[in-house]
Amino acid sequence: MEEAKRRPRGVLDLEAQFAFFRSQHRHPVNAAAHALLAGPILFGSLLILYFLPLPSPLDPALALSLAYGAAYLAVDRRAGALAALLLLGAWAASRALAARLGFALAWKVVLATELFCWTWQFLGHGLFEKKGPTVSELPAVFLMEPFLILLQILNKLFGYEPYPGFSKNVDKKMEADLSESRELEQRKIN
Rank of each mutant, 00 (worst) to 15 (best):
1 M>D: 10
2 E>Q: 14
5 K>Q: 15
6 R>W: 15
7 R>P: 07
9 R>V: 15
15 E>L: 02
15 E>P: 05
16 A>N: 05
19 A>D: 05
20 F>W: 12
21 F>R: 04
21 F>T: 04
23 S>K: 02
24 Q>T: 13
28 P>F: 04
29 V>R: 13
29 V>H: 02
30 N>C: 11
31 A>H: 07
32 A>R: 13
36 L>W: 09
36 L>D: 05
42 L>W: 01
42 L>T: 08
44 G>V: 04
45 S>M: 12
46 L>S: 01
48 I>Y: 04
49 L>M: 14
51 F>R: 03
52 L>W: 12
53 P>E: 12
53 P>L: 03
56 S>V: 08
59 D>K: 05
60 P>I: 02
65 S>T: 10
67 A>E: 01
68 Y>D: 00
72 Y>A: 04
72 Y>S: 03
73 L>K: 04
74 A>K: 11
76 D>N: 09
77 R>V: 09
80 G>S: 08
83 A>E: 03
86 L>I: 08
89 G>T: 04
91 W>D: 05
92 A>F: 10
93 A>K: 02
96 A>M: 09
99 A>H: 07
101 L>K: 04
103 F>Y: 15
103 F>R: 14
112 A>P: 07
114 E>Y: 09
114 E>S: 10
115 L>A: 13
116 F>P: 02
116 F>Y: 11
118 W>D: 07
118 W>Y: 13
119 T>G: 09
119 T>V: 08
122 F>I: 13
125 H>M: 09
127 L>N: 07
129 E>K: 04
130 K>C: 00
130 K>S: 09
133 P>W: 08
135 V>R: 12
137 E>T: 01
137 E>A: 12
140 A>M: 03
142 F>R: 06
143 L>Y: 04
143 L>F: 07
147 F>P: 01
147 F>I: 01
147 F>H: 06
148 L>W: 02
150 L>E: 05
151 L>I: 05
151 L>R: 02
153 I>Q: 07
153 I>W: 13
156 K>S: 14
156 K>Y: 07
156 K>E: 15
165 G>V: 10
165 G>E: 10
166 F>Y: 10
166 F>V: 09
168 K>Q: 14
169 N>F: 00
173 K>A: 12
174 M>A: 14
175 E>G: 05
176 A>Y: 04
177 D>H: 15
178 L>R: 13
179 S>K: 15
180 E>P: 02
182 R>G: 05
182 R>H: 12
182 R>C: 01
186 Q>V: 08
187 R>I: 10
187 R>P: 00
189 I>S: 13
